[in-house]
Design a protein around this nucleic acid. Structure first.
Lengths: 116, 116
DNA sequence: TTAATATATAACTAAATGGTTATATATTTT
DNA sequence: AAAATATATAACCATTTAGTTATATATTAA
């Protein structure tokens, strides 16, 4: 018998991922375009192993993807996962504030009126 | 000469606050109604000093407010601050995903069409 | 094939985290 | 005034975190 483990999507991990400024900046960079670990190391003022560790964490959270090419590893934002986590986050916090996504839409519309 | 320090509003702290499940649950409870520390301690399976510490952290982040009455301390969600942090979060991550608040509005609308 | 380069890993460190128990302080109740 | 109760704090602990340096491995370039 084969037992399948279904990864339960939680938002807690994305909060953790984003709570560190290095990781947040890495995600922000990778959102623009894929980068090698080398490029990321050059960009930040921390050591290569430090970046390697953070990338490992982000990979474990499935927030980034890795593509190997020769001696390089290219990293990019895992948009579907990140986007999904984002939406869950919005819902989760929105519920605390009694604001659903649709409530937020109304909020945006009311802001638009103020600007007009 | 008087020097004023202006607290720079960042979203980093809300990620940290929400990255711990106890804190997240406290915030969620306080979003519904104010509670004394005692009530929170009864609710959770952790010690009173543990809750006291988390409340201290949330107070430092200005995400909750404290009201003293007799020997009780009443805590509630600091809605303006929490709501503002929420909006900044949405903007910050939205930018990574090339989704502004207004982009999100369109997203919600397209979802509504699917449901209809 | 050797040198250079990109990444991975091991071993370590200091600080932060999230909890504990014991005890002190403040306030109310009896 | 004494007992009960709510909160605060001190001292401690185990684990995690985010970094470091040194070194190993994999791949490419000379």
């Amino acid at each position: 018998m084969v037992i399948y483990f279904l990864e339960v999507l939680t938002t807690s991990n994305i909060y953790r991922a984003l709570s560190d400024s290095t990781r947040k900046r890495i995600l922000s960079l990778l959102a623009k375009e894929e980068k090698t670990q080398k490029q990321l190391v050059e960009y930040f003022k921390v050591s290569q192993p430090a970046i390697n560790k953070q990338l490992k964490i982000l990979k474990e959270e499935d927030l980034i993807t890795e593509r190997k090419s020769g001696r390089y590893r290219y990293y990019s934002l895992n948009r579907p996962v990140f986007s999904m986590a984002y939406q869950k986050m919005i819902e989760e916090i929105g519920q605390m504030l009694d604001q659903t996504l649709h409530g937020l839409k109304d909020f945006v519309e009311s802001e638009e009126k103020e600007i007009d």
